[in-house]
Design a protein around this nucleic acid. Structure first.
Lengths: 197, 197
DNA sequence: CATTTTGTTGACTATTTAGTCTAGTTCTCT
DNA sequence: AGAGAACTAGACTAAATAGTCAACAAAATG
């Protein structure tokens, strides 16, 4: 089941056949059709499951016990680290799965599209809340937290998409710093790798 | 031939069959294989042609005879208008074709990927030059024009992608204003539609 | 006009693919 | 253990799909 997400992510939705899915999952087609009636159903279920697994991580990152700007910083760093792991694992940059899938299916699979939209709006809300908290705490000036969140969110999306298309992780190097610039907050220091103290 | 881009754009690359392409183009499959040896070849040719047709428009928008900020403003407005036309034509928001195609094929079709990367880097250069000009003219402060361009570019990409995924053009309402905010330049007035003088 | 090059066609094959169906297996519960 | 439910396997069909080919048509060329 988790194998499915991988196929959609490393390849494409339309380009992934049910036979491929079954093979990767080590399951015969009869079993597949026992649980799902088409590829879209499986995709929805897989999406749901992935999101269910991902959400607690985001909850931890955006924990209210952390300073709001620290939450955002962690989110950036987490995304970068995740992409690094995926690249090591698959040999190429994969970017955001929701975005990749959404871009492909949104004109075709309305059910999937809706689910994707929901997940994306959740992601936006994490950011929005953190920004609002930061504003309340005087750590930055963002009277319209939602607007600010939208900008940052679009920027992240764009950067992830670019990283995938260019197959180049260095595109994400600016992510954290630029995010904080866009927030109008002091840019946190880069954790250098062992060099320079 | 132009029909091909439409299919890739409204649907997806992998989801578009050669039969579909031939039918839409009013051509038999034999003819197809006389000119191209696979779908990827056609896609490359189509991309090239689309880009060749698009470039003069961008050249006009980014004409050096225009004030640099006006160029950027026009680019934003042009993108929005284009999306509006496409939505009227196809019934749904399509977003950026390069980005949509690139997101799908970049992990698979290396030839296509390279072409897409080239086109994207061209788009970035238009922006970069305009920003540099604006900086030189004192219309905004951007010592690192390239960095600024990258940010705006990623933002645009993200917004377009979101518009497609959400199938909602109103997402682009902020495009021009936010772009100018990110540039640190005064936001140009919105041209209201007949109402309010 | 005759010849060659360029392009077109539609029929053809071989795979691949989605989806079905039945017979069997494993699990669960009493 | 035994009955019934939940699940699996694998063979099967029908359709779609990629790609080939030889014959035909149009255009260019001398």
């Amino acid at each position: 089941m988790a194998a499915v997400s991988e196929l959609f992510w490393t390849g494409s939705y339309d380009g992934t056949t049910i036979d491929q899915i079954c093979q990767k999952a080590g399951v015969r087609k009869g079993s597949f059709y026992y649980f799902f009636d088409c590829k879209a159903s499986l995709a929805e279920a897989a999406l749901e499951q992935e999101w269910a697994a991902y959400r607690p991580k985001l909850d931890a990152i955006y924990s209210a016990t952390l300073p709001p700007l620290e939450r955002i910083r962690q989110h950036c760093e987490f995304s970068i680290r995740e992409q690094l792991d995926l690249q090591k694992q698959h040999g190429c940059v994969l970017g955001c799965p929701i975005c990749t899938l959404g871009t492909e299916v949104s004109t075709q699979e309305k059910g999937l599209q809706k689910k994707i939209q929901e997940i994306m709006s959740c992601g936006l809300r994490y950011l929005e809340t953190a920004i609002r908290d930061a504003h309340a705490g005087g750590e930055l000036k963002a009277p319209d937290a939602r607007a600010k969140a939208k900008i940052i969110h679009a920027y992240h999306l764009g950067l992830m998409t670019q990283a995938r298309i260019q197959n180049d992780l260095s595109i994400l190097d600016d992510l954290t710093a630029t995010t904080f610039e866009l927030l109008g907050a002091p840019v946190p220091k880069k954790p250098k790798k062992r060099s320079g103290g």
